[in-house]
Design a binder for these strands. Structure first.
Lengths: 97, 97
DNA sequence: TTAACATGCAACGAAAATGTTGCACAACGG
DNA sequence: CCGTTGTGCAACATTTTCGTTGCATGTTAA
């Protein structure tokens, strides 16, 4: 999941899709400094990580942001961050006592 | 930042450090199926991404979880998730009208 | 002082990620 | 029907990442 977010190009794709508009591969490739094929690959990664979904439309394949995907990543970090906070808090308390 | 989280070994290291206890490289290497050198590298990545800090202690180098690091990652995702939600909401509204 | 210990640095190898190009094919439009 | 368009697949090159091993160095403790 985080690995999918850990690439600059993919982050840019997610930002673009964040407008909510379904967009074709060609559309998504514009403005990016890589070829259509590279974008296709990245989209496949994002789809595998559940950050986007597809909808075929004639000869086009439009990709859409998947809200739940980001929510899940967000939640995962929230949980870990909370655990850390608790642990560090306990440790601090222990040292003070 | 996300790239640093996107590796299984590094995630395990973060979990271990999540106990709050500062731990040496040797300690962190135990239980992991890789060599000390590999762990050292991962720790360097985590430090560069601000997820951990060091404190030299004699001949040991102890690493500590850095709460703020996770908080920042968490916050970053929160912001993007919110933007997505807004955009998708507007789009839905637009379609319904 | 000297042996044991924790670590750093550098060289190297293997695997994965990223990107490209070339060709094929189905859908659309005049 | 035929050219254009949006895409898929496969082969390949390059770069990064991940891991190892070997040796050097500072610290500790008997």
């Amino acid at each position: 999941m985080f690995a999918a977010l850990g690439d600059e190009t993919r982050l840019q794709l997610l930002v673009k899709l964040g407008t909510g508009e379904p967009q074709s591969i060609k559309q998504l490739t514009m403005d990016l400094p890589v070829t259509r094929q590279a974008v296709t690959r990245h989209l496949r990664v994002l789809e595998a990580a559940k950050f986007v979904t597809q909808e075929t439309h004639g000869r086009e394949r439009r990709f859409v942001a998947r809200q739940a995907g980001l929510d899940e990543a967000h939640h995962a970090l929230k949980v870990v961050a909370q655990q850390w906070e608790d642990a560090l808090q306990r440790l601090k308390q222990f040292i003070e006592d």
